[in-house]
């Protein structure tokens, strides 16, 4: 089935070696390429297996080591006209551990839904499987969703099976000065709608004729891409609360309309977490890593 493998099942052996490296005692931290946050300082460092074991275009799945660069996965899938819904840069494992979605979340959903199966290394130094190889699967509790965004504090991703998506036949960015909420209500399942308080950038994918027709009925003009996103802070708001940004200085932020992420020049306001949620986070971490040895300090 169009498998482009280095060596069949090489990741099984790689996971065992990785587990031995992680071991069962002492603090240990993991880094991919350090793009997103990197390793915890002063702690023994390990790296996850690298390489693509197979690509199965007809299954819309790919299996690779967690240390594989996102760009390598992207290039392998491009040959088959597919992609993964994981933001570019760094490694697959790093992106999943951090759990932040890209600006195409409106159209493609969050990064957490890209993970179908993983072998991760637990705090006990064992290889543990979570999830299954098919897109549809409700066999047991959904550890995959829990692991995405857990910053390596519950286990270190060793290998993963990811869901892929077909690349669209055509895609185009547009600009508009219209109200973003008016615009999003008129568009059919846009991939991104970004807004900086004055200008709206819209990303559409699909058939070229449909894209042209949508742009023309909504009065948008073609552009190369969105404005540079402010890197200073990442706010997470209810999509309906984004309306509060109408009074913010235009250009000081770029908001993902319909999603709720705001790329802001100002630090995010402090958020209160419910005590029960804090306690549940603590209990889960305690069950998975009683000694707090995996990525120590990142649990807070």
């Amino acid at each position: 089935m169009g498998m482009s493998s280095t060596e069949a099942n090489f990741l099984d052996a790689a996971s065992e070696r990785f587990a031995t490296e992680v071991g069962a005692e002492g603090e240990v931290t993991i880094a991919g390429s350090g793009t997103r946050s990197g390793a915890v300082d002063g702690v023994r460092l390990v790296h996850a297996p690298v390489g693509i074991e197979w690509v199965q275009p007809a299954e819309m799945t790919i299996k690779c080591g967690a240390g594989t660069p996102v760009e390598e996965v992207d290039a392998a899938l491009r040959e088959h006209g597919q992609r993964v819904v994981i933001p570019s840069g760094g490694t697959i494992g790093g992106a999943l551990a951090v759990g932040q979605s890209g600006i195409d979340r409106l159209g493609y959903g969050p990064i957490r839904d890209a993970l179908l199966q993983t072998h991760y290394v637990s705090a006990a130094g064992e290889v543990v499987k979570a999830g299954g190889p098919t897109v549809k699967n409700v066999s047991g509790f959904d550890l995959c969703r829990l692991l995405v965004g857990s910053r390596g504090t519950l286990g270190f991703f060793s290998d993963v099976i990811l869901r892929t998506r077909p690349r669209a036949q055509a895609e185009q960015w547009f600009m508009s000065e219209r109200d973003p909420w008016e615009l999003i209500a008129e568009l059919y399942r846009p991939i991104s709608v970004l807004w900086d308080g004055a200008t709206v950038w819209v990303h559409l994918e699909g058939h070229a004729d449909d894209i042209a027709a949508e742009a023309s009925t909504t009065g948008m003009v073609e552009t190369d891409g969105p404005s540079t996103l402010p890197q200073q802070a990442r706010w997470s708001m209810s999509p309906s609360e984004l309306e509060s940004l109408r009074v913010a200085t235009p250009g000081s932020f770029v908001a993902e309309i319909g999603v709720g992420i705001v790329h802001h020049t100002r630090p995010a306001p402090n958020r209160e977490q419910d005590a029960a949620v804090v306690e549940m986070n603590r209990r889960i971490r305690h069950e998975f890593d009683p000694a707090g040895r995996l990525n120590p300090g990142l649990a807070d």
């Binding site: 509790f141 829990l146 993902e256």
Partner: peptide, 14 residues
């Protein structure tokens, strides 16, 4: 939460 990236683990998903 209604917001896309609540703090902490994805307890919703679990």
């Amino acid at each position: 939460g209604e917001d896309p990236e609540p703090d902490g683990l994805d307890l919703r998903g679990a």
